[in-house]
Design a protein around this nucleic acid. Structure first.
Lengths: 72, 72
DNA sequence: TTGTGACTCTTAGTCCGTA
DNA sequence: TTACGGACTAAGAGTCACA
């Protein structure tokens, strides 16, 4: 369970870093991804176990490959 | 929906390729990941939208980083 | 050895609000 | 702008028997 929290937090931190670098608010970025604002917040905080299809939406919104996105 | 099927299939094919390269059966590999054999089969066939925590289990079983795993 | 359908239970994900 | 909550629906997690 600890390890699960770990990957979720690492991924959330990565997303938050990339989002803020792009100058997006959580809400604007969630819209860009086609996801809900409160859900994106949960992902960034490492509270959500996001699934593949939505991970890809994020990578597309950020304009990078999944491989680049997962440089944690 | 097409695009969603696409990423699932790409990922499934990637896993299948890597698994067979390692000489694992689906069952042996699923055990290695701590997942059910039929579940792994569904992932490889692109029928499951696998979430982050299980993706990481697979990457660990394959002994590679998530970034390497996502070279689709 | 793998595909598949059916199933239960849990969580992904949305929408509404408040601080 | 973000965190966080409740209530809700859709879908993922996880397992089994059978082909």
């Amino acid at each position: 369970m600890d390890q699960q929290a770990d990957i979720r937090k690492k991924f959330g931190n990565r997303i938050r870093t990339l989002r803020t670098e792009k100058g997006f608010s959580q809400e604007a970025f969630a819209d860009e991804c086609g996801l809900d604002r409160s859900y994106m917040g949960g992902v960034e905080r490492g509270q959500r176990n996001i699934a593949l299809v939505n991970i890809e939406k994020i990578s597309q919104a950020l304009g990078m490959s999944l491989s680049e996105l997962f440089i944690l």
